[in-house]
Design a protein around this nucleic acid. Structure first.
Length: 329
DNA sequence: TTGTGTTTTATTGCCTCC
DNA sequence: GGAGGCAATAAAACACAA
């Protein structure tokens, strides 16, 4: 015996409880053995006929009437010789009958731990040894635990897959936005070059016409750099540089400008209202008139788009604005 | 029928609790 | 120190394809 343990051999007697009556009624459905009919009397316990393996000491030490009934005994064409052989063969494991298992399962559902009294009671009801009942519960708990772990694993797996999908979608969205940024930067560079050429010719003209109006004033007050100011109102203006709104083009409507200011675009983040502007911002607005717009708009190359929380210029969004970064798909 | 994988029953050794 | 639980494992019983 394990670890010097001493296990009670059990009685296998009938308690005569209601549970026994229940399973006696089901006995017809249970695989009834010829051996049962041989050894079972009318007053025998309901499960005694299918009694499983008992301890060797119990079996071998007892007389013939104490021999267990082996339900697993294959009796298709058994004669007396087979019976003899069977009774003399070494003890083997016996599976519990369907009824016994059902009984134990129901008991397990009620309580998966086995109190000593309950163990003895169940053993009596089932015609098993208390030790066998204990072993069955122990193994049943192990199976239950395994099942639970499998369920938990599935839940975690589903959660992981969901997160992975979200992550991949976000990556795609990020790539899309990056491509947009590159496109816009190209357009800006192009316009910058055009403006450089234009200013060069303006300078030449200016030297000949000193009374010409300042370039900035050609931009209407309602439109000038409102967007750029708000976009960067929380930022260090020293890093700003923009000439998106060319003084020569107050109604700048190329792809860049229109995409940023299109009121119909729900994703448009540049929809500031002048009434929302603080005095500082208004000052900046005025400053923007007198200074070059290049001081107002940030240099796109300086913006890090990889991590929204680290943007030096987040276009008016707080860095922790998760709503912006976790739009649905 | 047989080989092989799975399930069930039981053992062993270790650990915790009282 | 004994009782009982648990993890690991053995081994029999069982299921099933080839």
């Amino acid at each position: 015996m394990a670890g010097g343990r001493v296990y009670s051999s059990g009685t296998g007697g009938n308690s005569g409880s209601n549970l026994s009556v229940l399973f006696q009624n089901q006995k017809g459905a249970c695989a009834s053995e010829p051996l049962d009919s041989l050894f079972l009397s009318g007053s025998s316990p309901s499960f005694l006929g299918s009694r499983s393996m008992v301890s060797f000491a119990d079996v071998r030490g007892g007389n013939g009437s104490n021999r267990p009934f082996y339900r697993a005994y294959d009796h298709d064409d058994n004669g007396d010789e087979d019976l003899e052989d069977y009774l003399h063969q070494p003890e083997k494991k016996r599976r519990l009958s369907a009824d016994q298992v059902q009984f134990l399962e129901k008991s397990f559902e009620v309580e998966n731990k086995l109190e000593p009294d309950r163990k003895v009671q169940l053993a009596k009801e089932l015609g098993l040894q208390p030790r066998q009942v204990a072993i069955w519960f122990q193994n049943r708990r192990a199976r239950w635990k395994t099942k639970q772990m499998e369920k938990e694993y599935e839940v975690l797996q589903d959660s992981y897959n969901s997160l992975k999908t979200d992550y991949e979608n976000l990556l795609k969205e990020k790539d899309k936005l990056k491509a947009q940024v590159v496109l816009l930067q190209d357009k800006l560079l192009l316009r910058e070059k055009e403006r450089g050429i234009s200013e060069l010719s303006d300078t030449n003209k200016l030297s000949q016409e000193p009374l010409q109006k300042p370039v900035v004033e050609s931009v209407s007050e309602g439109e000038v750099s409102k967007v750029s100011i708000v976009a960067c109102k929380q930022e260090d203006m020293s890093s700003a540089r923009s000439d998106i709104f060319d003084s020569d083009s107050p109604h700048y409507t190329d792809g860049v400008h229109s995409s940023l200011l299109d009121p119909g675009d729900s994703s448009n983040v540049f929809e500031p209202d002048q009434s929302d502007l603080s005095q500082d911002e208004v000052d900046n607005l005025n400053l923007g008139k007198s200074l070059s717009p290049a001081y107002i708009f940030p240099k796109l190359e300086d913006i890090d788009y990889s991590d929204p929380s680290e943007n030096s210029c987040n276009f008016g969004f707080p860095a922790d604005d998760h709503a912006f970064w976790s739009w649905s798909y």
